[in-house]
């Protein structure tokens, strides 16, 4: 079963993920501009892009445990999924800067410094930048696999910051962002190398 899945997966290309990312960015923008997101299209667009960024981020974190626990190997899609998360985050940030804050730099800067949820979101985005830039094969070679892997461990703290950003932007404690945090904790916990022996003694 796993082998047939892996066999079919191997023949699927990863590039449609990029097309879908662009299409989704465009689709939501169209919904916002055509009045479907009224009365507050700016906030809706910000929200949609932000949620997509988080969802894609979680998707990239599913790949490794999925392979480890089920043997299903989707590794070839991981880079495209990670880049997709980055592009949604970029779109989310662009909506905030251009349409929401409208280049009020003083207010934005003080928001970034003073408001923890914006600080966290901004930090998460800044941490995504080097990962997106070094995502190519050429960069893996240049950095060496070891160093590249170490750099890309940034994805764990940045995912945590991203979800905290989501929890914090909501008034009070709401359920939806906590679900994301729950999923993230599970995905991170599955990566831990538990210290108990793999094969419990049968004696």
């Amino acid at each position: 079963m796993t082998r047939t899945i892996n066999h079919h997966v191997r023949r699927l290309p990863a590039w449609p993920i990029h097309i879908m990312t662009l299409a989704l960015i465009g689709w939501h923008f169209w919904l916002a501009i055509s009045g479907h997101y009224r009365p507050d299209p700016v906030r809706m667009l910000e929200l949609e892009y932000g949620i997509l960024a988080l969802q894609l981020l979680l998707a990239t974190l599913v790949i490794t445990p999925l392979k480890r626990f089920t043997g299903i190997n989707l590794m070839k899609f991981r880079r495209a999924l990670g880049l997709s998360a980055f592009f949604f985050a970029l779109a989310h940030l662009a909506v905030w800067v251009v349409l929401d804050m409208q280049f009020l730099f003083v207010q934005m800067l003080s928001d970034i410094v003073k408001r923890p949820y914006i600080t966290f979101g901004m930090a998460a985005f800044v941490m995504m930048l080097p990962l997106a830039i070094t995502s190519s094969n050429a960069f893996i070679k240049r950095l060496g696999a070891q160093r590249w892997r170490r750099l890309h461990r940034l994805v764990y703290p940045l995912a945590i910051l991203g979800v905290l950003h989501f929890i914090w932007v909501r008034k009070g404690f709401q359920i939806e962002p906590l679900v994301y945090m729950g999923l993230l904790i599970v995905l991170l916990a599955l990566r831990m190398r538990w210290s108990f022996p793999r094969q419990p003694a049968t004696a």
Binding site: P39, L99, M101, Q102, D111
Partner: peptide
């Protein structure tokens, strides 16, 4: 007086679409 999570200096008047002015 800012709210701890957002500045209250400006606001977006809803109903003016995606490019409504702050």
């Amino acid at each position: 007086v800012s709210h701890p999570r957002w500045s209250q200096a400006t606001e977006r008047r809803l109903g003016e679409g995606l490019f409504g002015k702050r």
